[in-house]
Simulated assay, not measured.
Amino acid sequence: MRFLYLFFLFVSVPFIQAQNQFVPDDTPYTTALENAKTQGKPLFVMLYADWCPHCNLMKKEVFSDPAVLAFLNKNYVCVWKNIEKEEGTALKNKFNTKSLPTFLFIDPSNETLLYALKGELKKEAFMAEVNASLNPKLQLPYLEKEFLADPGNSVKFFNYLNTLKKGKDRTDLSVPTHIYLNTQSDAQLISETNWRVIANGVTDIKSREFQYVLSHEKEFAAVASQSRIDRKIESIVSESLRPYVDNLDTTNYYKQREVTKSVRLQKIDSMVFKFDLTLAERTEKWQFYKKVTLDNAQKLVWNDASALKDIGQTYLKHISDTESLKKSISWVKHAIELNDSYDGNLLLARLYNKIKDKKSALQYARDAKEIAKEMNWNPKEVDALLTELNTK
């Protein structure tokens, strides 16, 4: 009997686990669309990828619940599309999806987007949103119509914007934002409400509104705060440049870089500098890396010991001409003036070794060895360098 009990236990546990495991139904999109029309239901689409951890958590923690699936199947026709397969890719492009997971609620009669969600949600939050998506007065077409009928009404604008941004990235908020802001004079822009509009929806660095913020920082800081102004400047620069860096699109990066650099603020120059270095490293454009650092390192990261050492490490690995290496040595020396450290002294020793200055290399290697001894750290790296230097 005990054997039979254990046998059934081992058989039943995987079976129960399999029952609770969510497996996406890969019904063709066109079939699901026709089924939704026939049944008079909206269409629910989840866009996901197998490598997406947030998608997998939603499958495990939300869609494995029979009550969730029962509610979805009662009120929607549901499909689940992997964006790395043909239909999923087409839907991702059709609805301009940039985040995963994304949930689309679609009117099957004309494929209008009724509602959209993005990112990982807990079960309670997801179900609250799914319920809201069934209310016509909370859906995007109704909210958009209400807003366009009175585009200067900030309440109607935010009702539309706040629902829109649940499923869209900031760049997709630009059109309604500028429709609203075109009803506002320059003087009217300086208010807490209109600052919120700008902060949420303005993404064009050359736009009238952003340029007005830059030229009236103090006035906007009085109705918002300087930290909020700074965060907006940082976000708009990031949104302008990061996509090109992520896609290694050097042609468009350099074009947008010139637009960004036309805003002559040191805080923007510092951000562009960091994007320049990231792109140069990813594309292995070491001459560009060298030019950018030689032109700007002392001006923009002179008091950042970590950044100076990072640049020095890159020079050690990828830059060969002696004069440039000597410049990087001056940066790393300043870094250890700011913060005397084992890694800084070891880096200086290696840089001096690279330009064949054995005496200086030995000096800084010994300094690194002393720091390692004081801190009770493993001196393996510096010992190897000292051995190399002493055998030359």
Rank of each mutant, 00 (worst) to 15 (best):
F44K: 01
V263I: 05
A361Q: 00
L138T: 15
G88V: 05
N73M: 11
K326E: 09
C52F: 09
K92Y: 02
R257Q: 14
E34L: 08
K232P: 02
L161K: 05
D357K: 07
N296Y: 15
N73I: 05
K166R: 08
K98G: 04
G167P: 02
Q226A: 03
Q188H: 08
L265Q: 08
F105K: 00
W51Y: 04
P42L: 03
F15M: 15
F147H: 06
S262L: 02
Y48E: 10
Y29H: 08
Y29S: 13
N56M: 13
N252P: 06
N75T: 00
I106G: 07
E61N: 06
E370M: 14
T250V: 15
N73R: 06
R2Q: 07
N96R: 12
V301A: 05
A199C: 05
L6G: 10
L362P: 01
Y115Q: 01
K290H: 07
E86T: 13
T31Y: 03
V223P: 13
N110S: 14
R170Y: 06
Q256T: 06
D204Q: 10
V245N: 02
L214E: 10
T260W: 08
F105H: 01
R350G: 03
Q184T: 15
V213G: 06
P14W: 08
D50T: 12
L325I: 08
F8A: 10
S328G: 07
C55Y: 06
Y212N: 09
I371R: 15
T97L: 14
N182P: 09
L338W: 10
A368N: 13
L279D: 02
Y289I: 01
Y115C: 05
F273D: 15
S185N: 07
A221G: 11
E381W: 13
M46T: 14
N353P: 00
